[in-house]
Simulated scan of single mutants.
Amino acid sequence: MNTSPAASTSDDIRFATLAPRAGRGALTIEYQWIHADRSEAPIALFLHEGLGSIAMWRDWPRQLCDRLGMRGFVYSRPGYGRSTPRPHDVKWPVDFMSHQARDVLPALLDAVGIDEPERRRMWLIGHSDGGSISLLYASAFPRLLRGAVVIAPHVFVEEISVQSIAEAKVAYERTDLRNKLGRYHADVDSAFYGWNDIWLNPEFKAWNIVGELRSIDCPLLAVQAEDDHYGTMAQIEAIAQSAKGAQLCKLSIGGHSPHRDASEALNDAVEAFVGRLA
């Protein structure tokens, strides 16, 4: 696998430059390989949550890659981590996740040299908004994916999500949450308000991607915890009704971040699912 000339390294973090396209300017994306020496192994590509980044995953992607025997590819979406920040006067559009799935992610794969044969063996591992983007990518490129695991994904807007995101805004502005998130993002206000503003935008309440799931044609595991305060089982049940062959994993505990709060149960479920298909 070749790395494009547009990529540079800084310690174990690399940066890829995506050329301007219609609707966006040039972007710099931070990314990281896990077990890059496993050149023959399939790639597990990780897509983070709405406030996530490479650093916020901590060691979980490596743990899962060890279980699965895969290479890992982790990146920070534009606006997060050390990738190009969102300009403070720019609001994410209602279809921002579709834009990430259909434009930004394919451009990044091109930039780092992940070609079509590699993509056909690739797995997406997406959390929260990253889970939604994974579903949208699987829908848009059904032949260029081996499978997907989506953890606490959103396919429509629930009131529990809006309430929790509104509470997060209060915490960000009145507690030390801003300082805590600042450890993981070069421009923490860009990261937080990009996510918070769009989810609290009244127009976003109509966002719904359930109909798009019908074109997914790869193995799919959807995971949801009972005690998630950002979404309910209705999310993955809607996935099962629309995406043919989707399998569900319902966890009794794990909150909105089972990879952190119920990692053993989650890892067991993912390993069993992938192993049956190996």
Rank of each mutant, 00 (worst) to 15 (best):
Gly255Thr: 06
Ile34Thr: 09
Asn196Gly: 06
Arg143Cys: 13
Ala269Asp: 04
Tyr80Asn: 14
Val170Thr: 15
Val170His: 15
Ala262Phe: 03
Met1Tyr: 08
Glu264Thr: 06
Ala7Phe: 01
Pro42Val: 11
His48Ser: 10
Pro258Lys: 02
Glu212Ile: 01
Thr17Ile: 12
Ala186Thr: 00
Asp227Ala: 14
Asp59Tyr: 07
Ala168Gly: 07
Arg174Asp: 01
Asp89Pro: 10
Asp12Ala: 10
Thr232Arg: 04
Arg82Trp: 15
Ala225Cys: 07
His256Asp: 04
Ser76Val: 14
Thr232Val: 02
Gly126His: 05
Met233Pro: 03
Tyr230Trp: 11
Met97Leu: 10
Asp197Asn: 15
Leu251Ser: 04
Ser164Leu: 05
Ser83Leu: 12
Val188His: 04
Thr28His: 07
Ile236Leu: 09
Ala36Trp: 03
Asn2Thr: 09
Tyr137Lys: 05
Arg146Lys: 15
Gly50His: 07
Glu116Ile: 08
Lys250Tyr: 11
Thr175Ile: 05
Tyr230Pro: 12
Pro5Lys: 05
Ala243Leu: 06
Ala101Pro: 01
Gly231Gln: 13
Tyr75Gly: 10
Arg86Ile: 14
Met1Ser: 11
Thr84Met: 03
Asp12His: 12
Trp199Val: 15
Ala278Asp: 00
Asp115Pro: 05
Tyr193Ser: 10
Phe73Glu: 00
Leu68Ala: 07
Gln235Ile: 08
Asp189Ser: 08
Arg58Ser: 13
Glu159Gln: 10
Ala140Tyr: 01
Thr175Gln: 01
Ile133Ala: 07
Met70Thr: 09
Val210Tyr: 07
Gly81Thr: 00
Gly52Trp: 11
Ile198Ser: 14
Ser10Lys: 12
Asp115Phe: 04
Arg71Glu: 03
Asp268Cys: 01
Ser8Gln: 06
Asp227Pro: 15
Leu277Glu: 11
Arg24Pro: 06
Gln63Gly: 01
Ala191Leu: 03
Glu212Gly: 04
Arg183Gln: 14
Leu64His: 08
Trp195Glu: 13
Ser139Lys: 10
His185Met: 03
Asn196Met: 12
His127Asn: 08
Val150Leu: 15
Phe204Gly: 05
Ser190Ile: 13
Glu203Pro: 02
Lys180Trp: 08
Tyr230Gly: 09
Ala111Phe: 04
Asp227Tyr: 15
Cys218Arg: 09
Leu105Lys: 13
Gly255Lys: 13
